[in-house]
């Protein structure tokens, strides 16, 4: 796990425990609202779990078992993320909240937009800023395509389109995503959707006054 225990500041009484694939977005949101940095302790778990969702619930549980006593409130910057409710069962034990939705694509784009995209083309492969930036590590190496390119067909034979759900405007990433679509032989669509309901985590923290218990 990529947990920096040295930076765990026990005076910050709210924990945001998020997927490593959201770290830049979470940091940017905190930076946009300086008052949050006094209230929040941000920790992230490995982004590589994007490809191994069975590791998410046990990983979150392990972290919270060791650290939940340090915090008044716990917010989890994950959706269900393919855990099939396993994450929710962990969160219930720790009275923690997560972002609504099936996965980050849904909470970034919003449920209506995501459903519309899925209806338009079921075989759609989604990328976010993080996934574009780390495409080779997470998608190519993570799926073993660097060593076994012949597996491409097994993974992607039913996909026809790549949609880049961008959080920020970045020309280079747009070019890269378009190139990945071309390399994979997919149609390409770009949508600047921002961070969607990821912001909800911080809105709640910002509104609620911090209660320090004795």
């Amino acid at each position: 796990m990529i947990i920096d225990k040295k930076n765990t500041d026990k005076t910050k009484k709210r924990l945001v425990l998020g997927c490593g694939a959201l770290v830049y977005d979470l940091l940017r949101l905190i930076k946009q609202n300086p008052s949050l940095s006094d209230k929040v302790n941000l920790q992230c778990l490995p982004a590589s779990w994007h490809n191994s969702p069975q590791l998410i619930a046990p990983g979150v549980e392990e972290y919270l078992s060791e650290n939940s006593h340090l915090y008044e409130d716990i917010y989890i910057a994950y959706a269900d993320c393919g855990t099939g409710g396993a994450l929710d069962r962990v969160l219930e034990k720790f009275d923690a909240k997560r972002i609504e939705g099936a996965h980050c694509y849904e909470f970034f784009a919003g449920t209506d937009v995501f459903e519309q995209l899925s209806e338009e083309e079921l075989g759609t492969f989604y990328l976010t800023d993080y996934l574009v930036k780390n495409f080779n590590r997470i998608m190519i190496k993570g799926l073993g395509l660097d060593k076994h390119p012949e597996l491409f067909e097994v993974y992607f034979k039913h996909y026809k389109k790549l949609v880049y759900l961008a959080q920020t405007e970045n020309e280079q990433w747009q070019k890269d995503a378009q190139q990945y679509a071309k390399d994979f032989g997919f149609e390409y669509e770009y949508r600047l959707v921002g961070t969607g309901s990821l912001d909800v985590v911080f809105e709640e923290i910002d509104i609620q006054p911090l209660e320090i218990k004795d």
Binding site: S52, L55, G144, L145, K147, H148, E150, L151
Partner: peptide, 13 residues
């Protein structure tokens, strides 16, 4: 967790 999907797919092949 010793093998991952890419390895399993090679085995299946």
């Amino acid at each position: 967790g010793i093998l991952f999907v890419p390895e399993v797919l090679k085995c299946a092949g």
